[in-house]
């Protein structure tokens, strides 16, 4: 059975069971590395992507729920050659250790900043609550998102 998904602006035809969680389709069928498998339970946020304007756990979201939605992954924010403002902020703050949680953090932050471009540090901390980091990069992640707030305001 095939399903139509719109991912990063591209229409994709996916031949997978309709209850397949989006995460596996993104990573395997569409070869997008941004969203990560962390728990498969919606507990850690490593798989976070944006559907329309909402951050979702792609590991517990079956693709059948996403027809007609605009899905965005980390790859939509920019490229290594032309990083987007949030990506550049994470580079500038060196906000990664192992980096495995970072794409999920960034997508949740991106959804926050689209909704609230002037997010404060307190708001950023609250917004990122669902996402776990084990390396202890939290201070840098917060700083990077704040830096992106400034960068986007100046842009």
């Amino acid at each position: 059975m095939s399903i139509q998904l719109n991912v990063n602006g591209q229409d994709e035809t996916i031949d997978s069971a309709t209850d397949t969680p989006l995460l596996y389709v993104l990573r395997n069928d569409l070869r997008l590395n941004g969203a990560k498998f962390g728990c498969g339970l919606g507990q850690c946020g490593a798989c976070t992507v944006i559907a329309d304007d909402q951050p979702i756990f792609s590991c517990v979201t079956p693709i059948m729920m996403l027809e007609g939605r605009k899905i965005r992954t980390l790859e939509s924010l920019g490229t290594e050659e032309h990083p987007g403002p949030l990506q550049q902020a994470f580079i500038d703050e060196q906000a990664a250790q192992c980096g495995y949680c970072i794409p999920g953090m960034m997508m949740r932050a991106q959804a926050l900043l689209e909704r609230n471009p002037k997010a404060t540090e307190a708001e950023i901390r609250v917004a990122l609550e669902p996402n776990l980091c084990r390396c202890g990069t939290h201070m840098r992640i917060i700083r990077a998102v704040l830096r992106a707030v400034d960068a986007m305001a100046g842009a």
Binding site: Q54, P55, A111, N116, V126, A127, E129, P130
Partner: peptide, 14 residues
């Protein structure tokens, strides 16, 4: 008290 996820309740979804 925790922030909801998403932070604000969503607008109407399509």
């Amino acid at each position: 008290q925790r922030g909801p996820s998403p932070v604000n309740p969503p607008g109407a979804n399509p």
